[in-house]
């Protein structure tokens, strides 16, 4: 039996090689993918999030942990799909049209994935139609919009308007974030939630789908 605690440590320490190796061993030994995710990876990413919030971890550590987790998830994803296990929620995420910045968005996507959400990352400079198409295709219940520039923030508003026009606004909760975005702005444009960092975004998403 492989030492599964090593998976927790590898994600926490951003050690992708070990994370992948332990996952392979565990699967070979017959451990279920859900057990790896629920008992080791989700707690590890939770810990990463709390270390980030108390300023012990910073962006580079977050990215490394996310990479370790992703390496492991790539092995598990096909098995999960085959088993038909339900994710914590289905999120469509992207940086809005006009904005190319995606580091913050990538962090949020990784943290959500680490928390057991099924995440569809549409990338950066995403037009509203792409969000709409992905919501319907993926049967998403959360849409996460990111913007780093004050000049691209209005695109969040127009994206939400487009969701209404297309008749999908009621199907999803909309969460927004990014350096210039504020709680007040989120309320103004009719978003359902705002978070000022990647770790708190997980708590927000959990609350929105609850």
């Amino acid at each position: 039996m492989p030492e599964l605690q090593k998976l927790y440590d590898a994600v926490l320490n951003g050690d992708q090689k070990t994370a992948v190796a332990v996952t392979q061993e565990a699967l070979a030994a017959g451990v279920s993918p859900m057990e790896l995710i629920t008992n080791y990876m989700v707690p590890a990413m939770d810990k990463v999030g709390s270390l980030f919030e108390c300023e012990e971890y910073f962006v580079p550590e977050l990215l490394l942990s996310a990479r370790a987790m992703k390496g492991s998830l790539e092995l598990l994803r096909p098995l999960l799909a085959a088993s038909g296990a339900e994710p914590a929620g289905r999120v469509v995420i992207g940086t809005v049209k006009g904005d190319l910045h995606d580091i913050g968005k990538n962090l949020v996507a990784s943290m959500l994935e680490g928390a057991g959400f099924e995440v569809t990352d549409l990338g950066a400079d995403v037009p509203a139609e792409k969000f709409i198409a992905a919501i319907e295709e993926k049967k998403a219940n959360v849409v996460a919009l990111s913007a780093l520039l004050t000049v691209t923030m209005p695109a969040m508003r127009t994206t939400i308007e487009a969701l209404k026009q297309a008749g999908v606004r009621e199907k999803v909760k909309v969460m927004v974030g990014g350096a210039p975005v504020t709680q007040q702005f989120a309320e103004e444009i009719g978003a359902d939630g705002y978070s000022d960092n990647a770790s708190a975004a997980v708590g927000l998403a959990r609350k929105l789908v609850a």
């Binding site: 962006v59 580079p60 990215l63 950066a124």
Partner: peptide, 17 residues
């Protein structure tokens, strides 16, 4: 356009040290 280059995120993160 730096942000459009695929390797930017990794180089940026590494350069924060």
């Amino acid at each position: 356009e730096l942000a459009a280059e695929a390797e930017f995120q990794d180089i940026y993160a590494e350069s924060m040290a």
